[in-house]
Design a protein around this nucleic acid. Structure first.
Lengths: 185, 185
DNA sequence: GACCTGATGTATCGTGCTGATATATCGGGT
DNA sequence: ACCCGATATATCAGCACGATACATCAGGTC
């Protein structure tokens, strides 16, 4: 879901849907683009759950004029008290989904608001996941190397290199995290 | 869709669903895992389109015995003549979807069956796409660098490096492709 | 002044993927 | 004798993606 990124962005400042989407794209790079078809329904769900609420900002009326009012105003969303609690709880609990591409990316984006021990746990879990993936690719590659055409071979070697690079990157992050001092919220 | 990978694998040998899935995972690395929830409906659709057909292989009867027959046999799929034509046409036409992660990956996996000029076109298109993406990230990073916390910064820098690495990798593939001689089917 | 493009802002819909689940058999280990 | 993991089929709820629609406004161009 878009639970973590939406609550996370709203924890920094109230925002309307359109801006939320822009900030999401900027934050997560082009690595993950969220369409309105998932954003607006998510906002609806989060609102029903009571974690965010909405303040409508109507169109600015030209002073003294009789505007048509036909255009919708902005819907500015902000975290409720329960929403703040829920977001903190989300950042504090670590499941297997924190280790896959999407879950890890969104959590890393809000690491500054995450406890240091949880940060380490997530980094270690992701590292283990990527190490297993890389090793799987390596052994598969060793087994089937001769049977592959050069293009498939290139594809798999590039994938393997990317996985290995991510493991090395994670090692740096882990080392920095251990060395500290890293502010814990 | 799973059109290209399924037709591509079946163009090498007839296969049943379970094996198809294993081969797909092996071929595309862990970079993309296909669930049965997408595989079986896809097979149904391809069959309705007339591009594949199915031969049921019942369970081996224990000689002379009266087996229960309760277990389903294998459903072995193979390309029809129309399917072969359609697959060749798919590999020969290049649209924008050949440049995104999924489309590029599946096409590269069957480059050995693709015409050399089409190969070059796809590689160039993908390179352009990734270059634009990398440049976008680079300028976004230059603009917002000071406002980002270290974790978000790390995330974005890693994404940028990955994009740059892919561009360099594509350059090598393009150069090799140009230099030839590369067998064209 | 008339025109057009691109950004801002909301929202919905069909298609189809994901992840979980169910059913059933077989080989191999203990 | 028993259980587990691999083989093999299939379905379903939930939800994301991409396209599309509508409406306004700022800016540039002819």
């Amino acid at each position: 879901m878009l639970e973590i990124p939406i609550l996370g962005l709203l924890s920094e400042a109230p925002m309307h849907g359109y801006e939320l989407r822009k900030r999401l794209s900027a934050l997560l790079g082009t690595f993950r683009a969220f369409s309105y078809g998932s954003l607006y329904p998510s906002l609806r769900r989060l609102q029903e759950a009571g974690w965010i609420d909405e303040e409508d900002v109507p169109i600015e009326e030209p002073a003294g004029g009789f505007g048509t009012r036909s255009r919708r105003g902005k819907r500015v969303y902000r975290l409720t008290a329960e929403g703040k609690e829920h977001f903190a709880a989300l950042l504090a609990e670590v499941g297997p989904d924190a280790y896959d591409d999407e879950g890890f990316g969104t959590r890393l984006a809000f690491f500054a608001q995450t406890r240091s021990d949880i940060r380490l746990q997530i980094l270690e879990g992701r590292k283990q996941r990527m190490t297993e993936q890389a090793d799987g690719m390596r052994s598969s590659l060793a087994r089937t190397r001769e049977r592959l055409d050069r293009y498939t071979l290139q594809l798999q070697e590039h994938g393997l290199e990317s996985a290995d690079r991510e493991v090395r990157w994670l090692n740096e992050l882990i080392e920095t995290e251990r060395r500290g001092p890293n502010p814990s919220p």
